[in-house]
Design a protein around this nucleic acid. Structure first.
Lengths: 242, 242
DNA sequence: GTCTATATGTGGATAGAC
DNA sequence: GTCTATCCACATATAGAC
């Protein structure tokens, strides 16, 4: 507690800079020298404080995901307590899951849009250690929300719900990560969201207003038609996590 | 045409291997030595045939996107000719755009699911030269489909259509790229799609049956509600491409 | 066209002084 | 805790023999 202050500051500064650079250039595209240079700390500081570049990335995420996971579980608990045993509405489940995420984007203390973009992009990083890490960090929350969606949509086959959960994650991740990517592809400006004029808070709010109806529309879309009993074969996937 | 055969084989073998490795490990995570080693060609062969690693990546995509772009434009032309001036149905536009893509996944000669996964993942690669390249390759096709969607959904604000186009691209990219990613996150098997038992062709068909209703449901979802005239401010984005 | 050998740069990590 | 100096593996790219 005496000279810890400088040390804590160094740690936090490294994490903040790493978060921003990993977002902008990807894991492999960001070097330790870029990070320590921008953070104005010594090259050896990362290894001293975190042990390795991989461990640094994990810590960048752990810092934020601790809050996100807790908040997502808390929101779901609150909704289910309020419902008193009755199934939730699909819109409530989505609001708890994605609304919590988007609220992080409005709060600079929680990483703001920088962390949201990093999260969206990192989910597609192919490195094994990253995939393994995310699987562990997300498992509990995903399991809880999966069950909530099963109860909210009792007439929809569970396999279909899981597929659509994937699609929603994808749409959301791209929407977030791509506030500057996809408008290049489509060659269009997207109102205030891309510019700085309206600020980060507005960006997250705009995005939420746009994406939530889309997700709900997709989740509740008519079921696909299969020939014969193809659907039966897809029924009831077994969760890996007991 | 005399001893060209060996040379052409070398080129193609490099492209095939690069496609697979870029898909599995990303651009930065794949070294020239990995590529030339797997392709069983000399280390210098890549630079001889393609000039650089960046140029190799571009060629990997050009080879496939030439077909995809042509086919997407052709499908749209055919539908519009058939409609004789009347607007298309949203489902027709989606079928032409995403159906064409998914049909590549069933055809090994066009890269199959390997290329589809590579495409989905590469769209989020942050490297500048990759983003620039994709912007150029996609511009014409995206512009045509954007206009087709505007006509297909005359009551939906153009800005909202563009947003939803983004969301659809995201959902599709993740669904494709994540046939092995997202099931880690959700901790669930996804029927035949993940395994090899049913083959690549079936994987693309399964995915199509699942994702198309989702996309259509999202595209046609009720419009979001904004307070006051927030919507007006977002109206009529100006395409960068004249 | 293919190969060997090598130029030249950068990566992550660490030992040891302060 | 911080810093310098350095190790060493590996990256892309190329020059020049065959």
């Amino acid at each position: 507690m005496s000279d810890n202050k400088t040390s804590q500051d160094t740690r936090e500064r490294i994490l903040d800079v790493a978060e921003r650079l990993f977002m902008a250039h990807g894991y492999e595209g960001t070097s330790m020298r870029m990070i320590t240079g921008d953070a104005e700390v010594n090259l050896a500081a990362v290894n001293y404080h975190f042990g390795s570049k991989e461990a640094l990335l994990r810590e960048v995420f752990r810092r934020r995901l601790a809050w996100l996971n807790h908040e997502r579980l808390h929101e779901l608990d609150a909704l289910e307590a309020e419902a008193g045993g009755a199934p939730l509405k699909p819109s409530q489940v989505l609001e708890a899951f994605f609304g919590t995420l988007l609220r992080m984007g409005e709060n600079e203390a929680l990483g703001g849009m920088t962390f949201l973009r990093l999260l969206g992009r990192t989910l597609t990083e192919p490195a094994d250690f990253i995939r393994t890490f995310f699987a562990g960090e997300y498992a509990e929350v995903i399991e809880r929300y999966k069950l909530a969606l099963f109860r909210a949509l009792p007439d929809v086959p569970k396999a279909e719900i899981i597929w659509r959960f994937h699609f929603m994650l994808g749409a959301m991740s791209y929407a977030i990560a791509g506030t500057d990517i996809l408008q290049v592809v489509t060659g269009c400006e997207l109102g205030d969201l891309s510019g700085e004029k309206a600020g980060e808070r507005n960006a997250a709010k705009q995005l939420a207003a746009r994406v939530m109806p889309f997700l709900l529309g997709g989740l509740r879309a008519p079921l696909p038609q299969f020939e014969g009993d193809a659907y039966q074969q897809q029924e009831m996937p077994l969760p890996k996590t007991a």
